[in-house]
Design a protein around this nucleic acid. Sequence first.
DNA 1: ATATTTTTTGAACAATTGTCCAGAAAATTT
DNA 2: AAATTTTCTGGACAATTGTTCAAAAAATAT
Lengths: 204, 204
Amino acid sequence: MTKLDKIARLAEKAEAKSAKRARKKDELADHAITALKQLGYARTSLRDIAEMSGVAVGTLHYYFEDKVDLITYCVRRYKVGFVADMGSILEADVEPEQLADRFIKGLALSIRRDAETHRLWYDIRTQAMFDPAFEEVVADIEDGLINLVATFLSRTGVSQDQARPTYLMLDSFFRFHLQAFLKGDRDAPAQFEAEVSALLKRLG
Amino acid sequence: MTKLDKIARLAEKAEAKSAKRARKKDELADHAITALKQLGYARTSLRDIAEMSGVAVGTLHYYFEDKVDLITYCVRRYKVGFVADMGSILEADVEPEQLADRFIKGLALSIRRDAETHRLWYDIRTQAMFDPAFEEVVADIEDGLINLVATFLSRTGVSQDQARPTYLMLDSFFRFHLQAFLKGDRDAPAQFEAEVSALLKRLG
DNA sequence: ATATTTTTTGAACAATTGTCCAGAAAATTT
DNA sequence: AAATTTTCTGGACAATTGTTCAAAAAATAT
């Protein structure tokens, strides 16, 4: 075995190890999210998360620096997934009008299906107004969302410099009807769909 | 002294007493707000508030049921004041266009002047997604804000059924630029003014 | 099989939390 | 001036918090 072989094998090992560690982190994060989306940032303790994950509290600190690190990791992970999901809708090769329809329907569906998870995002976004530790993750995610809207607009033939105002408009309606849905209004997603659809036509 | 006189005087006393109590509540609430707007709901302890108010912790519980009662009282008090302030702008007898200009300028000014207080509102509004105890106060305030926008629209000659979408639009821009301002972007209020002004012309 | 490293545990720690309450202080009534 | 009521105090309470760490357990390497 040459020296190069040894080095290569060592690198392989190191990579496999960090990959395994990453998998475990994600596994823990997924359990953490189920706890966080139920109670919110401030009300969820590391013990809640540990119990939900079936591990001891110390294990969490073995994988995550501290609570902020753990929570930002969770929010980032889930929101990246959301942006990817919505992005895949935009890949379909259909008429602009139908695309807009599908996109809005996708958002409405996400209110219905992932309401509890989305409120965690709003929780963290608000925390960032008080705690600079959350500023980075919030800015990153918000950039991703604006970017998502930008590709949506480019696919429907609208100028991309409308991305931020459009994102803000979508976000405010999304937030409002999410709130209504969480309060028990089962029709909120449908209303979101109708209202946003109308407003989008008015603007486009 | 007749019996009626006695009753009248008793009623007077009772009213004076509850008025005094109400004044003290407001005084405590004002101090509490200065603490809350700096740290946010979850991070502010009753001891922080007591220290800020120059009273003992027990005194807070003498005037308020519990922490939730105290905080909802504070948020309600400050937001009612804000709505009243903005409402007084709408009383001016000027051209619709100038009125819109003044209204938006008033909002931009409030970002500059009351940034820390406004973030407390967003904090409580988000908490309401997790804790039903905040649902009522949030719904009340949001109704008040939509109402404010409704009178704004009626004064500028726009259909009132656009109140909610317009409120949501204003809110999202307000929130976004408030966030930017809190992160250190001193131009955020001016940008808010420009962007909202443009969008409003596009819609009206 | 043994040695080494990685992973996990859960008890211990100090700090903080909201709430309660007996008694002091102040205000009001008689 | 005495009695009564209202207001306020601040220590005590139990519960909970994030974090640390020595030791055990498990996995991996020799």
